[in-house]
Design a protein around this nucleic acid. Sequence first.
DNA 1: AAATCATTGTACCAAACGGTACAAGAATTA
DNA 2: TAATTCTTGTACCGTTTGGTACAATGATTT
Lengths: 186, 186
Amino acid sequence: MKTVYERADVVPLLAEIFRELGYEGTSLSRITERTGLGKGSLYHFFPGGKEEMAGAVLADIDAWFEQAIYRPLRQDDARQAIAAMWVNVNDYFRSGRRICLVGAFALDDTRERFSAAIGDYFIRWIGALRSALSRAGCSDEEAQTLAEEGVAGIQGALVLARALGDEMIFTRSLETLAKRFEAATR
Amino acid sequence: MKTVYERADVVPLLAEIFRELGYEGTSLSRITERTGLGKGSLYHFFPGGKEEMAGAVLADIDAWFEQAIYRPLRQDDARQAIAAMWVNVNDYFRSGRRICLVGAFALDDTRERFSAAIGDYFIRWIGALRSALSRAGCSDEEAQTLAEEGVAGIQGALVLARALGDEMIFTRSLETLAKRFEAATR
DNA sequence: AAATCATTGTACCAAACGGTACAAGAATTA
DNA sequence: TAATTCTTGTACCGTTTGGTACAATGATTT
């Protein structure tokens, strides 16, 4: 028996599984089959079972967005951070081939289990984006409206891209949003 | 034993259950408990089981959107039909308390089962909206972009409203979109 | 009223579910 | 090397899953 994995190595694998199958659709047998880890290992790393696994995935996602998206929006040059956001988001979601797990969890009953993490994720995204827009010259009201429109637009573009099996519509939607932001901050 | 229900009476009940729990999260026991119908009745109306139930729900949704949203957008006065769309969509989704089942199905593996119906729903919505925008004076390119932005914006607003447990953000997002459309069609 | 058809509740099925127990092997420390 | 801790595979648990069979009752037709 080998000691190959650490908890941190498993989380990204779990993330991909939850993304594809959803919370209820992800069974322990699918997890063992796709991670190669038996139930022994799984319950050793995540004593709380499936719920703890999904929780760890959400925390991991949150940490990534915090450092790659939110913090730059709050601290760095506003226009540059916004421009970087479009690029990073397009990469992160693989041009729409990958979905937003937080958004997906929000849509069904799974939300009840993780409402705090789900709410936080979007509150902080909108807040960080609003901060950047304010610094870039938008009025408070305009910054709030535009920030909500941007985040909602990304989530909607993911739905559309998956529904139509079309990556181009995702990238195109981001470009449209980017243009709106540029028009409002010059 | 009574003969109360018809197939058509069950479909809206099923729709609400699938909306709340998702496809995988919806078990036959939850269905029997919330519809009051035993497995006997259920499999009598839907011999194909859960998949046929969800298929019937999607067909029902599609029919509603066709008559209430798409057809007016294609046939009636363009500006009026667009204005009516925002109102009808806000009502249909109960200000964001209700989600779009088609969008939710698109996000996870459930898409594989119903990809044709899911794709159709969004293609026809975008197409109808583009038609109205064109008739209202938009260029072909602008109409396409704006139609995609509108449908994506609605889907994203549903995600946000559910994630934040906030109805106002949904209604507010629709108003923002409506203003964009008005600015582009005058 | 007899016969037919539509509807329904109950009992049942094998398979899969999430989770637990635990002994045995690996890695680390003493 | 001995003791200890960290990992892992396997077997097992009770429950729930989607689905089937079928008899019994309701409504409808003849």
